[in-house]
Write a protein that binds this DNA or RNA. Structure first.
Lengths: 219, 219
DNA sequence: AGCGGCCGTCACCGTACTGTCACCAGCGGG
DNA sequence: CCCGCTGGTGACAGTACGGTGACGGCCGCT
């Protein structure tokens, strides 16, 4: 687990660092907010241990920046302030946890471990072929960066083809996987849908026809 | 955000439930550990508020089981015991946060909210899309700087969408996370609520519909 | 008790989607 | 060179899905 400790009180910083290392974590230590931002750009930390009172850039700001940049690090905020209002405010600012000084070291370790236990969720796969991108989670398709509006069936067909790059996919296979079972097996809807799909994708063609075989994309 | 409250003290349980609902969360309440395990199997809760002293199955065991099953729910443990050793032990058991009774309600809310934020990818404390800003802490929404008054459900739906910018969120997913289990699965309330939400947000539209898919904001 | 806001249900509507059909085009084989 | 077969295309219509407005029950507040 990768941890960045940001704490201007140097002795405390080193103590924390040493203690976390003893727990098997990979720890970097910096002593002000500006340095923290630099490091965070370079390294994908799992957890930030962040003092709230920092030179150059405050802990609140580091925390907010991290959120804005979409960095995956979880934040454990350290603070001297113990009032209820401040604790609530800190949590709502985007810190994932909060610990008030003075704290007991085992508790810090336990909280850091709790934060690091989960790493970020897996990235949703994006399907590509030439200059076409299909993102299943967003249900979007772009060609050369420009969005292409597809209907549900068209989208499903394209996704099915792009998921099998280079393979020939028969009309029957498409019927089985994209259409439901109530579909008339003698339907001509596959070729119609493919026609519409090709029209929306434009030139040059993404989907090739294999005579007597089916359709093929990518590869 | 979907929350399960597990607390055998019935009055307290209902008080917590009502309070969290007022904050726009979808809350289910059970009064013992066995029931908690059953519910957790069925519903993808974001946060568990878990009393440690429970009939049938203790809070510790519920917590451990949840971890073993790989359930994504974050756990906020409630306890009368306040000793440091116990707190550390609870955290190492898999609880994500710890609160000792008696507690202040705003702090409970803030902690539950903080945990809910962690259950997805990290979310910046203020959600933005175009000229819309949503502040979970203050429960406010503005459009082009002007406040927009939303009901709790509308707010929760918008927050859920904005926390997943660009992603298509299905009606089913919204039902799972924004509504609680008392909801008729064939309900049309999602589209109605979305209609009202869109009306209040005004033009240009913030939320797009993906046919057969769901809804998408931002991105 | 009265009131108002919230939200779930229902009925109705407009429209995008998609299946059908008729016809066309291209290719290959005889 | 022509015929037949396979695949592409354009028009049309039925439908299912999503949007909308009205209604009413419930709950909290005064």
């Amino acid at each position: 687990m990768r941890v960045l400790v940001v704490e201007d009180h140097e002795l405390l910083a080193r103590t924390i660092g040493a203690g976390l290392r003893r727990e098997g974590m990979a720890v970097d230590v910096v002593t002000d907010g500006g340095q923290a931002l630099e490091r965070m750009d370079l390294t994908p930390y799992d957890v930030l241990v962040l003092d709230r009172d920092l030179p150059t850039v405050s802990g609140d700001d580091v925390c907010r920046r991290a959120g804005e940049l979409g960095l995956p690090a979880r934040v454990l905020m350290l603070t001297a302030a113990a009032t209820l209002a401040e604790r609530v405010h800190g949590l709502d600012l985007g810190a994932d946890d909060y610990l008030t000084k003075p704290f007991d070291f085992p508790e810090l370790v336990a909280r850091v471990r709790a934060l690091g236990r989960r790493s970020g969720p897996p990235v949703p796969p994006v399907l590509r072929s030439a200059d076409v991108e299909l993102d299943p989670a967003r249900r979007t398709v772009t060609r050369a960066g420009r969005p292409v509006a597809l209907s549900p069936k068209e989208f499903a067909v394209l996704a099915h083809l792009l998921a099998r790059p280079g393979q020939v996919v028969s009309a029957e296979d498409l019927l089985d996987h994209v259409w439901d079972e109530a579909t008339n097996p003698f339907t001509t809807t596959v070729k119609t849908t493919l026609g519409r799909l090709r029209a929306k994708l434009g030139d040059p063609p993404i989907i090739a026809t294999v005579r007597e075989g089916g359709y093929r994309a990518g590869g």
